Amino acid sequence: MKQREQYEHWKQVVRGRSRRDVLKGLGAVGMAGLAGCSGGSGGGGGSEATATATATDGSTDTSGGTTDTPTGTSTPDPVSGSMTIFHAGSLAAAFSQAEPQFEEEYGVDVNREPKGSVASTQKITQQGRKASVLGTSDFRLIRNRIVPDFGDWYTIFTTNSMSIQYREDSPGADEISADNWWEILSRDDVTIGHSDPAVDPGGYRAVMTQQLGAKEFEGSALYDQSTYETLRENSTVPTGTETKLKGQLESGALDYAFYYQSISSTADMPFIDLQPQVDLSKATSKYAEHYAKAEVETSSGTFTGAPIAYGMTVPSVAPNPEAGAAWIEYFGSDAGRSILEEQGLVPVDPIVVPKSGQDAVPDRVMNVASAKSSLGPLEL
């Protein structure tokens, strides 16, 4: 149910249409850009700076938005050969499911390398490696670290939310709920796991979720600063990426794990859907302003809270850029969106590209994309 609600929410954000627009018969209107989610340049030490929201009523502003650019209609060139994809661990299930279908349809041999999104980005920016697609769980890594030196454009194609997973025999499992999870997780006998914030957005978002619970939202916080500090004391980083946490949770090495709802909802273990004020799922001005109160410093940069949005790009160093564009096209199609939904992700429909880099977007991607200057409160 929550996934469907998120899907409908993001469809409204992407399409950016108000009831007034429909009644007047105007074309689709994009979301008003808020000066936010802009960040540092380059690799380590850069800042993924805060989202500075101007609206506080919680609604998504559609009245003064940026007009959509119609999708393309040209016939793209055929593709062939092979390609390598660097991608977030949380995309592994969806990309693995899509791989045989894509290979059969397009005749391209796909090689994938899942890893934390920060580390995946650094393969290109710091290690000099080449791939035909880069897929990250935080689109800002592409916007701020790939463009313009290693690429000219990107797309936002899916979203997610944070959750807590546990075993049926985890300490406090028979008591935990959405209304008291922080009380259970702050007990002395509880071990919490999350991925490495320096390597993986799932890691810095786990810390953000804990931070936001202690931040006032609409007049109150879920818990106090002391509880937040206890949550951090109980937290450990046993792995680089969130997908490896599942095995550690199953083995009993961890009692609870903070990671994406897409992973939790497809695993055979109970999980907690978190409050929107902490789960980073809501792309509205009110929530973006609240999420921006969270900030995590790591050895690979400082990251600031924002609604979760995944990005993909074909880097300028891509050995097979046509195949890379075809992969992105696939995830802008009904088949690709269906796979994302099956794997617990919330597809953006249509996928969105920045209007500022539209001229560089391949025709086959523009055929399934909409060009915007902003997506809800997210500046593109």
Rank of each mutant, 00 (worst) to 15 (best):
V13L: 07
L222C: 02
S220K: 03
Q358P: 02
D61F: 06
V314F: 09
L141Q: 00
K282E: 14
G344M: 04
V13C: 07
D334H: 01
A309M: 07
M269S: 12
I308H: 01
N111S: 14
G25A: 10
A288C: 02
R167C: 01
I85N: 13
K11R: 15
I156L: 08
T54D: 00
T313S: 15
I328Y: 03
T136K: 02
E342T: 15
S137D: 05
G357A: 13
S177F: 04
G25K: 09
A94F: 05
T125N: 01
A214D: 09
G128A: 11
N111E: 15
G301S: 07
E242V: 15
E297L: 00
Y259C: 11
M31I: 08
L34W: 01
G252F: 07
D21E: 07
P347E: 11
E5S: 11
H194P: 01
N320M: 13
G202C: 11
L134A: 06
P315H: 05
Y260H: 06
Q97P: 00
G116E: 08
S96E: 15
E242A: 15
L245Q: 12
D188G: 05
Y256A: 06
T125K: 01
T241M: 10
M208C: 04
G30T: 10
I272S: 12
E342I: 07
A283F: 03
W10K: 06
M312R: 11
S226W: 02
S316Q: 13
S41P: 02
P270I: 12
I176A: 05
L378D: 06
G89Q: 11
